[in-house]
């Protein structure tokens, strides 16, 4: 049976970085070093977060971190923040194409970087709401929250890929 967590039935406390401890109030169960993972890392944000034990077995699913007690919510969201790194691209500085291999230099919320994009037909995914998901040749992921809201030069550059 799948076990869902909602509201104040659990107390989540930080363990170490990406790990958290869980204490269920009603059943008195305690779990340590659980790893929260998003079940929908690309589309679901902090809704449906699974808690996995050291063997990768699921202990429970948090339906929405917003429904947790403030401390528990902070604990799980901090751990998720630590685990997931999807830099948000805010501006494109340069895109150089040589025989369909692209070197992109972009400004992100993690700083400026240059990365390589190959086969952009399958690695640059535009979504209906203006979001663009990008995977580089090292399998790092990036996101443009809404490409239409970027500066005109960046829009022009990315539109070529969409």
């Amino acid at each position: 049976m799948l076990r869902y967590i909602e509201g104040n039935e659990v107390k989540l406390t930080p363990n170490d970085g990406i790990f958290i401890d869980a204490e269920f109030y009603y059943t008195k169960e305690k779990f340590t070093a659980l790893e929260p993972h998003r079940l929908f890392p690309k589309s679901g944000g902090n809704k449906y977060v699974t808690l996995l034990d050291a063997d990768g077995n699921q202990v429970a699913i948090i339906r929405d971190t917003a429904s947790l007690l403030p401390e528990s919510r902070k604990t799980v969201e901090d751990a998720l923040e630590e685990y997931y790194m999807i830099p948000r691209i805010t501006r494109f500085i340069k895109m150089v194409d040589t025989f369909k291999i692209w070197m992109w230099t972009a400004e992100t919320d993690h700083g400026i970087l240059t990365f390589e994009v190959k086969n952009h037909i399958s690695t640059v995914k535009p979504l209906y709401d203006g979001r663009v998901l990008i995977t580089d040749t090292s399998d790092n992921r990036y996101e443009i929250p809404d490409y239409r809201k970027m500066d005109p030069r960046s829009v022009k550059m990315i539109e070529t890929m969409l």
Binding site: L2, H37, R38, L39, F40, P41, K42, S43, G44, Y48, T50, L52, G56, N57, Q58
Partner: peptide, 13 residues
Amino acid sequence: AHGFITRLPDGYD
């Protein structure tokens, strides 16, 4: 199937 899906980095995504 839920077990192996949860262990995938992108889960149901």
